[in-house]
C-alpha cells in the first residue's frame, strides 16, 4: 500500500516537473532550447582545447575530457534541479507549504521532480555524445562498450547525485533566494575535484587526496572505463575496476544516508524558524 502511494507521488511529481520544464513554449522551441545549451557548454571546452592545441581534437585526453564533460551534465542539472525545487516551490509558486501539509512524502516528491531533470539531461548527454562521435570523431565503438559496467555505474552515480540534490534542498530550506547560488558552487566542487575535464593527477597533492574521497570521481572513472576500456588518469588507473565499483557503491550509500540526514536537519530548523513559506524578494 505504502509502495503504491509512493509510486503515485513519484509519478505525479515527475509529471508536474515535466510540465514545468516543457510547457512554457512549443515543442519545436523546447527542442532547440534542449539542444543549444548542452552543445554550447561542450563547445566551450572544445574551443579551449583547440586554442591550445592549434586545432587538434584527437587523442585520448580529448576523448576523456569530452565524455567527462558530457556526463557531468547530470551533476550540474540534476543536483541543481532537485535543490532548486525548494526555492521555486517556496518563493515562486508558493506551494511548498501545501506539499508539506499534503500526504505526499517530501523526499519522494523531490525525487519525482528530479526524475524530469534526469530524463532531460539524458537527452542532452545523448545529443552531446552523438555530436562528439560524428562531428569531432570521438572514438566510441558501440560494440566494445562494457554495457553492464556502464549500467551499474550509471545507476549508482545518479543515486548519488540525487542524494546530493536532496542534501542541497535541505540547505536551501534555510537560505534566501540568492542562496540558490550554492548549487553552482557545489557543482563547481565536483567540476574541479572529480576529474571531469582534466585528469586529477594534474591537481596538487592535497586536492588529489580530496578527489579520491568523492564518489563522482569514481563514477566518471567507471563510465570512462566502460566506454573506452582504458583510463589516462595516473591517480586512478592503478585501481582495479571491481574496486572502483565497490568504492562507488559504498560511497553512494554513505552519501545518500548523509544527504537524507542533512535534509532532515534543514527541515527541522526550517519548521522551527518558520521558513517553509519564506519569500525573499531582494
Amino acid at each position: 500500500m505504502a509502495i503504491k502511494a509512493g509510486l503515485k507521488i513519484l509519478k505525479n511529481s515527475s509529471w508536474l516537473g515535466w510540465q514545468m520544464e516543457s510547457n512554457w513554449t512549443d515543442p519545436f522551441l523546447f527542442a532547440i532550447y534542449s539542444l543549444v545549451k548542452p552543445i554550447a557548454a561542450t563547445l566551450l571546452i572544445v574551443v579551449m582545447y583547440i586554442v591550445v592545441t592549434m586545432g587538434q581534437v584527437q587523442g585520448t585526453f580529448f576523448s576523456h575530457m569530452y565524455i567527462g564533460n558530457a556526463f557531468y551534465m547530470y551533476v550540474a542539472q540534476v543536483l541543481f534541479g532537485v535543490s532548486w525545487v525548494v526555492h521555486e516551490d517556496r518563493e515562486h509558486y508558493r506551494t511548498l507549504k501545501y506539499v508539506y501539509i499534503s500526504p505526499a512524502n517530501i523526499y519522494i516528491y523531490l525525487l519525482g521532480r528530479g526524475m524530469t531533470k534526469i530524463f532531460l539531461t539524458t537527452v542532452s548527454v545523448i545529443i552531446t555524445i552523438v555530436f562528439g562521435v560524428f562531428v569531432l570523431n570521438i572514438p566510441i565503438n558501440v560494440m566494445t562498450i562494457d554495457y553492464p559496467l556502464l549500467f551499474i555505474s550509471f545507476i549508482l552515480g545518479i543515486l548519488c547525485i540525487v542524494g546530493l540534490g536532496i542534501a542541497l534542498g535541505g540547505i536551501s530550506l534555510l537560505t534566501a533566494k540568492h542562496g540558490g547560488r550554492i548549487n553552482e558552487g557545489v557543482a563547481g566542487i565536483f567540476y574541479l575535484f572529480c576529474g571531469v575535464i582534466f585528469p586529477i593527477s594534474v591537481l596538487p597533492n592535497w586536492c588529489r587526496s580530496f578527489s579520491l574521497y568523492l564518489p563522482i570521481t569514481y563514477w566518471l572513472e567507471a563510465i570512462r572505463r566502460a566506454i573506452f576500456g582504458i583510463t589516462i588518469d595516473q591517480a586512478t588507473n592503478f585501481i582495479p575496476t571491481s574496486s572502483v565499483i565497490s568504492i562507488l557503491t559504498v560511497s553512494t550509500i554513505l552519501f545518500f544516508i548523509l544527504a537524507l540526514n542533512i535534509f532532515k536537519i534543514g527541515d527541522y530548523f526550517a519548521r522551527k524558524k518558520g521558513l517553509i513559506d519564506m519569500t525573499t524578494a531582494y
Binding site: H178, G188, F193, V202
Partner: peptide, 21 residues
C-alpha cells in the same frame, strides 16, 4: 557562496590549460 564556491568552477578551467601546458 559568492566568494569561495564560484572560484572552484573557474579553477577547473585553469587546470585544463595547466594540463595542456
Amino acid at each position: 557562496f559568492d566568494t569561495i564556491l564560484p572560484l572552484l568552477g573557474v579553477a577547473a578551467y585553469v587546470y585544463i590549460y595547466k594540463a595542456l601546458n
